[in-house]
Nucleic acid binder design. Structure first.
Lengths: 188, 188
DNA sequence: ATTGTTTTGTGACGATTGTCACAGGTTAAA
DNA sequence: TTTAACCTGTGACAATCGTCACAAAACAAT
């Protein structure tokens, strides 16, 4: 909860009263490794602030799992489209370790936002953050080769390389496991 | 302006009074072919609702231009990160034909949003739309081969294939011009 | 019509990557 | 400690794609 408060304050001004109003929308939950925070085909009705452990977002493409995102401590994990439009999610979010999250219930969050403009502003900031993250990631794909993407991770997201297995990273970078293995050995 | 109203109503409830309050933030502008709506390195201080013609967003990577988006009639063209965070834009937006847009001035828009929750809600909806578009496009890159991406455009964005030159589309799809030419000839 | 400019198609070739197969390592549970 | 399951590294080979070069086609302007 302390991390969550720090995260919120890093985004926007947030009073003690706002926190009181927001609190009922929050629950701390733990997921065991391999459990799903969100399953493809279901509607996303919550945001998850990750306070311990990490998870991954992945699409199932013809039986093959393709990672599109990792969420570590102090990240917000969700499907923002599914959340905002109440459409079925096209991807799943799964715990890669035992994970602790603070869950923001959609309905209660909306009620809280209606009563408090600070909470409304926070919601908007979160949306922006998520949009920004998506744009960065999309640009990484469009502008870089596999090797450059790997170097980008080394530079800007080293925790991914430290904590995530090669196989999972390869899927995230869009290359075969073997190719990533060779990229690594080339760079020693 | 009529198209803009229809667009707004498709997103959210919007009263005549809100429109009155919003109007001072709007200007209709035309850009000639090749003119810039936004230049890389500058801060984006406006949204552009495209009412005629189309434009492209592109990154400059070591002198090579890489297209990342096209904006047609009834699209909102902007750099949402640069707009929201007042950071320098990493890409440019350029008119590909003579283009007519309705410009939303950032400062005036914010003032209008402070006076009217409907305008505030509209802003949020726009943000969501843009985030959704980005996510779709990112997924296209991560999940599909070049050929599948081309077929995706055929299915979901045929106006791109009709109106944009092969060279520009190739850059957008992330393949060499020649490769796209071969994808096309394979599919006849 | 003619010229010049831009765009598109195509062949050849080399580089990169994916696929398949298998070996070596690591980890976790019994 | 042993086993089993999983992850990683590596070689061989085929398929794909990018690059270079140039021809054909489309388009614009005079």
């Amino acid at each position: 909860m302390k991390n969550l408060l720090a995260y919120i304050h890093s985004l926007t001004n947030f009073s003690a009263e706002s926190w009181e109003i927001l609190s009922p929308a929050l629950t701390t939950i733990t997921f065991e490794k391999d459990q799903y925070l969100l399953e493809a085909g279901k509607v996303c009705d919550a945001l998850f602030f990750v306070s311990g452990g990490y998870c991954r977002a992945f699409y199932d493409k013809d039986g093959q799992e393709i990672n599109t995102d990792f969420f570590f401590e102090n990240d917000i994990a969700t499907n923002i489209n599914s959340f905002a439009k109440a459409e079925k999610s096209e991807f799943s979010i799964q715990a890669c370790e035992d994970v602790t999250v603070v869950r923001f219930d959609k309905k209660k969050l909306r009620e809280a936002a209606e009563h408090d403009p600070e909470i409304d502003g926070l919601g908007r900031k979160c949306l922006q953050q998520i949009a920004a993250k998506q744009e960065k990631h999309a640009a990484m794909y469009k502008l870089m080769t596999a090797q450059e993407r790997y170097e980008y991770l080394e530079k800007y997201a080293p925790e991914v390389l430290q904590r995530v297995s090669l196989t999972q990273i390869a899927s995230y970078l869009g290359v075969a496991r073997e190719t990533l293995s060779r990229i690594r050995s080339r760079r020693l």
